[in-house]
Nucleic acid binder design. Structure first.
Length: 941
RNA sequence: GCCUGGGUGGUGGAACUGGUAGACACGCAGGACUUAAAAUCCUGUUCGCCUUAAAGCGAGUGCGGGUUCGAUUCCCGCCCCAGGUACCA
């Protein structure tokens, strides 16, 4: 029989499903290996050919590890809460669960088509109540926890309450809101419940607080920082504005340091780690107080808590440059600008503030060249010299970072330098190593300090230490670490998400009882906000706790469900816990995680955060959940174009010009469906039916055919460049598609999809199939003993695939398979002792064809999936002769066959005696002869 | 600007620790089989020069330099492409 890929593939897919071949057990004597894919959001458009790239890689790896004797966990599921289903529901009235279900079924069909070895008994869906019940449960743990800095971990809130009740707020070192109260134990115990709850909320890891949020009016919801790109929403590209709202947040900042340090312990791509480092944005420096007399005197208020202090606090990473500070700059939004502005400067300052307010966020970011600012008229006092330092405002200082105020050191910072030049402020040299200060700032840390009072003559480290000590002594500052990372907003004013398991009593949030989980998403009549602007859950009838207390109306953000899902796979059916202790103890962490780099500062950061939290509470074992991570490259689309001739009026005609001739005419390019183009040649008949307007199309051909132009773009329906994996499977089979996607190039690299090369891989599989068959296509395998050449071929591939898979170089394996099959074809090898192990080696890449041949080889009951990977024997690769490349002056001239047993002097002799070598030498004696045994010979004349 | 990758034939790419650059495919050209097509197989294919041919010569891994017997690989300077990021003090 010829290679009937469709029939073979469907039969084995059914076999695997029925026999549950890939079901993993939580108990095994084998070592464990956990291979995870980033689970997909099941979108309405289904999978295109780019989506399975990572899944194919993980599947090859999983299958390989099974052959190597590992107990492999390789699960799949769906991140099924999210915006698109809800937007669709708003438009059609269709319940999101209905569309989601339909999309999932479609995804499943497409995934099954590719022969993945997923353990589907562990499937998870984040929108399933049996799943989100545990997302809600984790939220409750976060609400019930605080971060103890001394222990450097999260602890139950009861421990904090106990501390307050016995010792008051003294001795508490927590990551908390800024404005926490100081109180004694007696005071705490005398607080009303409301006051106690208000105070505790400032410590909880999941907390409700009025904060400035990214509000997206078009989507009617708030967004997390990572969901906003350049002032627009990541989904849909709608404008986002800043707004103050009561919002649920997650105190991820408590974990900033651990999130940063953890990066050094995990095997992730460097760019990804760098992105997380930048996102966390740790700056080590100092905060320094510059006293301002005018501040205190200008304010009079009785409430001591609200009293304006008599200083401006700045954050700097270069406290060593403090003697070069010739001015202070505040953000225009800084809260004391009005109080600092003198009557004479009022007009100027007001005008400047107005001017900056007019600039949009985008303009302000884009325009970094123009120097602007205004003088407030006030002066601060330099903490060491006591000299007056003028206070300015300028929009290059951001209100949201640090303290919203900086000290201007023009000799050390380029922005300060430009500012000083522009406004003619003094530029003071502070180090003997600084150069060309009339040209630019010189931020060097080398050299010794000058013009710097008591640090004169010191080097950088000593100066910083001396300054910090002095600042602390004077109470004018301290060493400080600043983070860019902000707490993550956790509520979304949307319907299709996990309800927050919280109700309100007297305006204070309380958790529902754990026994009442899951808190089910209620039915609503419409998926829109209420008339009064409440989130959609406000429409639900009798949506009240114990029929009297209002539930929280926001739902959780998309990242909630994906921040712990890898644990659910370990024990997906558990009704009592999110996963049992035994399961977590066994599987521990993810050994290999593959997915896109777009999740760098979202999912991958939140997941690490929740994981660390769960570890603090003792629920999980490891500090980092994903040991090794690989970003697969994006598969871009490759669009094809036809060129429509346009007439004098510039109107499109009915004639289309082939690519090679288009420059001779006036034409416009039009996207054409890549599925009616082969090797860039257009199928003219199919084109006429592509769109009704093309029915009578005429063509100007080039060499009798119509050649299309092409361009690399994002794969999308509107560009007609979407290639569906189902079509590929139909035409070439899943094994071919799997091999081809790997053959395309290195996994991490982004590349355009191009179907052109797939034939080569298809041919390879058929050639492989023919090794097992005679001329009449009857299965024919001999039991003859293999010869040396055959064994060499086999053992080369055994070794190569082992090495390639371990370093995720899947593309080179495919080439090597081709070489191996080409060699065996030339040797006319049909020997069982060669072909049987070869089948095993290839089975992780092409599971269907190898499974079929495996059964034809007589393994009728068992699947090849659990065969043992063949053992590599180096002796079969040993050669006794080697074709030495002989170079003259580094240029390769010839090959010389010599026995490998020869030692260096013998090789030298043999080479020099060779007639061809002599011809090149032209009777000269070489100055030098380099011989590397088994490698090369180089003669220098 | 900064950070991280990367730049190799007509195309995708290979060359893992410095040792025969272009493996393996696609495409293209030519040929075999066939009434024909498909399928399959064979030969050639980095560029340039020379030659009837065999062979030979020269150049060549973004550009310019360096180290080395020998550099796609290491070092210095520059250019370009992709991704990330930003008045972060």
């Amino acid at each position: 029989m010829d290679y009937q890929y469709r029939e073979i593939e469907q039969r084995w897919q059914k076999f695997w499903a029925e026999k549950q071949t890939y079901r993993a057990s939580n108990q095994s004597t084998k070592p464990k290996f956990y291979v995870l894919d980033m689970f997909p959001y099941p979108s309405g458009s289904g999978l295109h050919v780019g989506h399975p790239l990572g899944y194919i890689a993980t599947d090859i790896f999983s299958r390989y590890k099974r052959l190597k004797g590992f107990n492999v966990l390789h699960p799949m599921g769906y991140d099924s809460f999210g915006l698109p289903a809800e937007q669709y529901a708003i438009q059609t009235g269709q319940h999101p669960s209905v569309t989601t279900e339909a999309n999932i079924n479609r995804y499943r069909e497409q995934l099954d088509n590719l022969g993945f070895s997923f353990d589907w008994s562990r499937e998870v869906r984040t929108s399933d109540p049996a799943y989100y019940r545990w997302t809600q449960w984790i939220f409750m743990q976060l609400f019930n926890s605080w971060y103890n800095v001394r222990a450097d971990k999260a602890e139950p809130i009861e421990r904090l309450v106990a501390h307050f009740a016995s010792k008051g707020s003294v001795g508490v070192n927590a990551v908390a809101d800024e404005e926490v109260l100081s109180f004694t134990a007696e005071e705490w115990n005398a607080f009303s419940e409301e006051k106690q709850q208000t105070e505790l909320l400032k410590y909880r890891l999941a907390y409700l607080k009025e904060s400035t949020v990214n509000w997206c009016p078009a989507l009617g919801t708030v967004l997390a920082n990572d969901e906003v790109k350049d002032g627009l929403s990541e989904r849909g590209g709608h404008p986002v504005v800043q707004k103050k709202m009561m919002q649920w947040s997650m105190r991820i900042t408590a974990y900033a340091d651990r999130l940063l340090e953890g990066l050094d312990t995990i095997d992730w791509p460097e760019p990804l780690k760098e992105m997380q480092r930048n996102w966390i944005g740790k700056s080590v420096g100092a905060s320094v107080k510059f006293s301002v007399d005018s501040l205190q005197s200008s304010v009079s208020t009785d409430d001591s808590e609200l009293q304006t202090p008599n200083y401006i606090e700045v954050f700097t990473t270069r406290v060593d440059t403090i003697f070069g500070a010739s001015f202070l700059v505040l953000a225009p939004e800084h809260e004391w600008v009005a109080q600092l502005t003198t009557p004479e400067q009022e007009k100027e300052v007001k005008a400047y503030i107005e001017q900056t307010q007019k600039k949009s966020e985008l303009d302000r970011m884009a325009d970094t060249k123009t120097v602007s600012g205004a003088f407030t008229g006030s002066y601060a006092k330099h903490p060491f010299t006591g000299n007056p330092v003028p206070i300015w405002i300028a929009d290059y200082v951001l209100a949201g970072y640090g303290t919203g105020a900086v000290m201007g050191v023009p000799s050390g910072d380029q922005r300060d330098w430009l500012f000083a030049k522009h406004f003619k402020l003094p530029i003071v040299q502070i180090s003997d190593a600084q150069k060309d200060l009339d040209q630019q700032a010189d931020p060097t840390k080398e050299g010794k300090y000058i013009n710097s009072d008591f640090i004169n003559g010191l080097i950088y480290q000593d100066a910083v230490a001396a300054l910090i000590a002095k600042l602390e002594e004077k109470g004018q500052g301290k060493a400080k670490v600043n983070f860019r990372l902000r707490d993550a907003i956790f509520g979304r004013q949307r319907y299709w998400g996990e309800p927050v398991p919280v109700y309100f009593k007297n305006g204070f949030p309380y958790l529902i009882d754990e026994k009442e989980l899951p808190l089910l998403l209620p039915e609503v009549d419409k998926y829109l906000p209420t008339e009064s602007g409440e989130p959609p859950l406000g429409r639900a009838k009798s949506w009240k706790y114990q029929d009297q207390y209002e539930y929280e109306l926001s739902t959780m953000p998309g990242w909630a469900g994906s921040s712990w899902y890898w644990y659910r796979y370990m024990d997906a059916q558990n009704d009592h816990e999110f996963a049992s202790k035994t399961a977590i103890d066994y599987w521990q962490d993810v050994d290999l995680y593959i997915g896109g780099s777009e999740h760098a500062t979202g999912h991958l950061l939140y997941s690490r955060f929740w994981n660390k939290f769960l570890k603090d509470l003792g629920y999980v074992k490891v500090e980092e959940p994903f040991k090794k991570l690989i970003n697969q490259g994006m598969i871009q689309g490759r669009s094809n174009f036809v060129y429509r001739l346009i007439d004098e009026q510039g109107k499109g005609t009915n004639t289309f010009v082939s690519f090679g001739l288009k420059d001779q005419y006036k034409t416009v390019p039009i996207h054409v469906d890549v599925n009616i183009v082969e090797q860039d040649t257009l199928d003219l008949e199919k084109f006429k039916t592509f769109r009704p307007e093309f029915a009578n199309a005429e063509f100007i051909l080039d060499n009798g055919k119509y050649t299309c132009g092409h361009e690399v773009e994002k794969m999308s329906k509107s560009k007609f460049n979407v290639v569906n994996p189902d079509d590929m499977v139909e035409r070439y089979g899943a094994d071919t598609l799997r091999l081809y996607e790997m053959f395309l190039g290195p996994l991490e690299q982004s590349k355009p999809w191009n179907t052109n090369g797939i034939e080569g891989v298809f041919k390879f599989l058929r050639k492989f199939w023919r090794l097992f068959h005679d001329e009449q296509m009857n299965f024919a395998v001999s039991d003859e003993a293999p010869n040396k050449a055959e064994l060499k071929s086999l053992h080369k591939i055994i070794k190569k695939v082992e090495e390639d898979v371990e370093r995720f170089s899947f593309n080179t394996s495919v080439s090597s398979f081709m070489i191996c099959v080409n060699e065996l074809t030339d040797l006319k090898c049909n020997k069982r002792q060669i072909l049987e192990p070869l089948c095993i080696v290839l089975s992780s890449y092409a599971p269907h064809i190898t499974e079929e041949l495996w059964s034809l080889l007589g393994h009728e009951s068992g699947s090849i999936s659990y065969a043992a990977y063949p053992v590599f024997h180096p002796e079969f690769l040993v050669e006794d002769e080697f074709a030495y490349p002989v170079s003259i002056n580094g240029k390769m001239r010839m090959n010389l066959n010599l026995p490998l047993s020869l030692e260096v002097p013998e090789i030298e002799k043999a080479v020099l005696e060779n007639a061809d070598v002599q011809r090149y030498l032209e009777n000269k004696t070489p100055k030098k002869i380099i011989v590397v045994k088994g490698r090369i010979v180089n003669l220098v004349i």
